[in-house]
Design a protein around this nucleic acid. Structure first.
Lengths: 242, 242
DNA sequence: GCCGATTTGTCCGTATGTATC
DNA sequence: CGATACATACGGACAAATCGG
């Protein structure tokens, strides 16, 4: 897989930070030194560093340098800022994923579904209900709606493994952006049946609309998470007030 | 307040998108056209556009152009991807904020507090408990811990208005990055007392560590949100798998 | 299917501004 | 004040993807 130059530098620096090559609060080599190390232009270094800033790994300070603010204990989290499939998240955390397909149907978007998902009325969709286990504990109940035109020939077998893997590797659909909204909702009977929430009466709900590289929204998903295992992590950057 | 060139272009394009000057799914002018419009270099345009991409406003497609994917209905949310004070969020949504200071004390970080907040043991802190109202409804119960050295001479009066305003405008502390973790927790008696959760038995909790431009973590805050009014919005960009 | 025009993606070099020490 | 560091901005070159003829 060909990586771009700035991406290689980004990963190289990221690894060095994660393995503790730079101590917490220590300054990284200056841009000029990094230019020599990686034999590249200043723009390329700046691009790699700016990606680390968005990841919350480092902080740049004009006139001072680039400070490492990575704390390993905090950066381990299941749900992250990026777009990841359940399988990928599990693997990143070295855990064993399993997916059970509860329901696999083809439906047509009626007005109610259309308004909830954002698809146009009358659109042909796959509606899939899946239960995701981690280390044999049911954690997430997923309701997926996929555009039939884009996610062609989806099967329960694919849904049991990884739909994203199929979309990207077989259909060459490139997933680009995803708009997500997180809320807390009262549990329903279905939630209780599959997730066994104990004495919690609500759960964490992540709704997302995902776009492919043609700008088409091809997926709407509602993920209902067990509250005691839900943890969403985020790094925010302050925009100066004007 | 002086704005940089790319920031002006960013805001100009953002406004045009929000006011519907470009239709949903329509292509924006190409980079070369934008260069002529704003009389600048290509890098400057690219920087402005890339900020719009992170905001989930547009999508860039190699060989095609820049597509507007802004949907007004979705972009209105109280809690957002950036760092915002309660007062700023309220004003952005044209609502009336009010803050009640429940408790204002100075404490010294014992081992328990230190491990929860991430401050070193023995650090001098302000501990503030505040209740935030929107349109006279109690929505958020905040537990703030501020480093006494940085947030010097904080008073209950300041806490009732806006601590961030004081930090930035009076003390010239620049707020840079914030690491946040979102979870769902069981409610406590204090939550129930102030937030009146009805028949919900849990709430949305956002814990954050905020750093200033010297790389010092000067704030730890736990925000406990009424679940029925909590809504966190986010735009994610897929990183290609390697 | 090919070719050329258009458009975004990557990369380089340079100059100047601004903050820190 | 000068040296160092990051921030902004410009210009140019080539690659890769898309689209129309």
């Amino acid at each position: 897989m060909p990586k771009s130059k700035y991406d290689k530098i980004y990963h190289s620096l990221k690894t060095k930070i994660e393995t503790g090559e730079y101590a917490f609060q220590e300054l990284l080599p200056s841009e000029n030194q990094l230019i020599l190390t990686y034999d590249c232009s200043r723009n390329t270094i700046r691009r790699a560093v700016s990606a680390l800033v968005t990841d919350g790994y480092v902080q740049t300070m004009q006139g001072k340098g680039i400070r490492n603010i990575f704390q390993p204990a905090l950066q381990t989290s299941f749900t992250m800022g990026g777009i990841e499939s359940f399988k990928e998240s599990a693997m990143r955390n070295n855990q064993v994923p399993r997916t059970e397909v509860l329901c696999f149907t083809e439906i047509n978007a009626d007005p109610k579904i259309a308004s909830r998902t954002g698809f146009a009325i009358g659109t042909d969709l796959y509606y899939i209900q899946r239960l995701h286990y981690l280390n044999e504990k049911a954690l997430i109940l997923n309701h997926n709606y996929f555009l039939k035109d884009i996610a062609a020939n989806l099967t329960p077998e694919i849904a049991q493994n990884s739909i994203y893997e199929y979309l990207e590797q077989t259909l060459h659909v490139s997933i680009v952006t995803s708009k997500r909204v997180m809320t807390v909702e009262k549990m329903t009977e279905i939630d209780e049946k599959y997730l066994h929430l104990g004495n919690y009466n609500c759960l964490a709900v992540v709704s997302s609309q995902t776009y492919n590289s043609d700008g088409i929204m091809f997926e709407y998903t509602q993920s209902r998470h067990r509250p005691d295992y839900f943890r969403f992590q985020d790094n925010a950057v302050r925009k100066t007030i004007r």
